[in-house]
Write a protein that binds this DNA or RNA. Sequence first.
DNA 1: CCAAAAGTGTTCAGGCTACACCCATGT
DNA 2: ACATGGGTGTAGCCTGAACACTTTTGG
Lengths: 240, 240
Amino acid sequence: MKPLTTQAPPGAKYIYEYPRAALTVDCVVFGLDEGELKVLLIERALDPFRGQWALPGGFVRVEETLEAAARRELEEEAGLREVYLEQLFTFGAVDRDSRERVVSVAYYALVKRAAHAARPDTDARDARWFPVAAVPPLAFDHEQILATALARLQGKLRYQPVGFELLPPKFTLSQLQHVYEAVLGTPLDKRNFRKKVLGLNLLVPLNETQMAGRHRPAQLFRFDAEKYEQLKQRGLHFEI
Amino acid sequence: MKPLTTQAPPGAKYIYEYPRAALTVDCVVFGLDEGELKVLLIERALDPFRGQWALPGGFVRVEETLEAAARRELEEEAGLREVYLEQLFTFGAVDRDSRERVVSVAYYALVKRAAHAARPDTDARDARWFPVAAVPPLAFDHEQILATALARLQGKLRYQPVGFELLPPKFTLSQLQHVYEAVLGTPLDKRNFRKKVLGLNLLVPLNETQMAGRHRPAQLFRFDAEKYEQLKQRGLHFEI
DNA sequence: CCAAAAGTGTTCAGGCTACACCCATGT
DNA sequence: ACATGGGTGTAGCCTGAACACTTTTGG
């Protein structure tokens, strides 16, 4: 690979007058759909990897923060707003883009109700949810980024209450358990799960139930974000 | 702040013909000295913040990886080689450098025997170890980076055996306990600590003792890195 | 009345915490 | 002999894991 250099115009005074890497953000968007953990992918419209699937992302503008760039790309490429977003890792292999040096700051996002959120607007490209267990071949090093994100999500879920970010504001305990089972990939004991999660005192039971089919209706809860913030100050010990 | 733009020379074909952020790495180097956790700081030789203390770091070259840049800067600015190094976070606030847009990938490093490693060679600048509890005002957003690194180190120490990275290859259990106490900032029970750390079966007792003063000599151990790698594959559960 | 998911307690084992004294050495 | 840190075991408590049946609804 022979990187094209970006040089200063004559007379300009830079703090660093050398070729610069390009800076991008890439987002691993997780969502739950039909009890399965899915990831949002975009079909590339341009070379390289034209027609292949890739993580949503793009170049960071010089006047926006990294997180702002990530949110902008999510909105532009998938119509997503107000998602849970967290920086994951920065990928800087020299040849991760064959055209020139591109360093990418990866984020991962959690969205509520994956099914309705898939909206490949703005751009003509296709956007689609894939089960994380069955993603197609991805462009660049995006498979590595996805693997990193999944590992991080699994770790995070165990000791921080992010599971709620994958559910609507009102949810049942069974739904929450399904989130954990889908992400961690293991079945959990119903009684132990309820005991533990209720023991945190972070779930507020609502005066509503959810009837879904011919069986007993389920109690709805909401997550008490305020209380969680308070507890976090004093060092919450949370583990599933 | 009015960022100077880096523009393409006429005729060049870029994948991204916009102003680019500069990319740097900054390293938070932790070391233990006299039972205290210390950070390595560099005195800046240039504006801005000339004469102030800052984290070692510098620009990423277009043909080197991020980690390679971090290692190069550590060697150039502090004469450090073969340290434990891990990516921390990427800081991208728009105004974190007043001259122009600079995005910095922060790393943290752990070095054995802080006292001997302080070697401000190569450059004329001063390099010095400061107790983390008493750092001088730092340049840029380096105080924020340091705070992030400390929080990460404390978290990491609890569930991954990185404490050894702050000690020489042969060490006593008391030394290891002091590492934990210094980093976490809390006293630990001697018997419980030894029980737990020995229970991991990752410490190999050597046929040597360390005599240090007028008291009973202490058993020396080494960390079994190979065994740890094997256990890590199968999902180690480690917590102090 | 049948199917399907919701909801509920107890027992047991293992790990964590708290705690006090003797040991080996140098001065 | 004494000062200094090295080294050791136990008992109570708490937490996590395993485990089966009743309840409520719709069809």
